[in-house]
């Protein structure tokens, strides 16, 4: 009987041979031959590399990232005043500090601080009057107001956190200082945040 081809594989040309012979050398289909391992690894690799796009699509998209940075014109801010703008969905305080506020902040550099930071670390060199902080209380996220509290800085009405004129936590439940975002001075009057 001539060997038949059906499609592209041959029918076995033995008359009997119904059972897969698991003891024939090297032909146990369950044996972990290299090729089977390779195929299984390839399958795993396909699933893993396809998983990344599905995970990454939940990361911020192009239009969200477009609003990730904002440029601000500092000429709008008077001495001793702060402006609140929305940045990345959160309030951003841009404050032009008076000399007194700066001095008070430097004086407390060595005080007992929960989150120790010098005032110098919280502003750009040579621009001590400009304080840029995210206006979200580091306790549970309320927006602090300026001019309340015991340290001349911000006060959060929700649970009574007190911040000083450098935005450092002095009293109350908040664990860390008001966050200073990434920002750069594009010129003396323009700052880019984010």
């Amino acid at each position: 009987m001539r060997p038949q081809t059906k499609g592209s594989f041959k029918v076995a040309d033995t008359v009997v041979g119904a059972n897969p012979d698991t003891h024939a050398a090297g032909d146990d289909p369950n044996r972990r031959d290299f090729i089977h391992i390779a195929a299984a690894v390839a399958a795993g690799g396909a699933v893993a590399s396809l998983a990344w796009p599905f995970i990454d699509q939940m990361n911020p998209s192009g239009d969200t990232l477009a609003l990730a940075s904002v440029e601000f014109d500092l000429t709008k801010v008077e001495l001793g005043q702060q402006v609140v703008i929305k940045w990345r969905g959160k309030p951003l305080f841009i404050r032009k500090r008076t000399g007194a506020e700066i001095a008070a902040a430097i004086k407390d550099d060595t005080a007992d601080l929960r989150d120790p930071q010098t005032d110098e670390e919280r502003h750009k060199p040579g621009k001590a009057e400009w304080l840029v902080v995210i206006g979200t209380c580091t306790h549970l996220g309320c927006v602090p107001t300026f001019g309340g509290g015991d340290f001349g800085g911000w006060f959060c009405p929700c649970h009574g956190s007190h911040y000083d004129t450098s935005g450092r936590i002095r009293k109350g439940p908040a664990p860390t200082n008001l966050a200073v975002p990434d920002y750069t001075f594009l010129s003396d009057t323009k700052v880019k945040v984010g």
């Binding site: 599905f54 990454d56 699509q57 990361n59 998209s61 192009g62 969200t64």
Partner: peptide, 28 residues
């Protein structure tokens, strides 16, 4: 469905937003 908006004024644009702005949105 995480990105699509089922409103007549936004549906078409939301699909194009998926194509352009959502990471790998075009692929999905």
């Amino acid at each position: 469905a995480m990105h699509y908006v089922p409103h007549v004024d936004h549906a078409f644009a939301s699909v194009e937003r998926i194509m352009r702005d959502v990471n790998y949105g075009w692929l999905i």
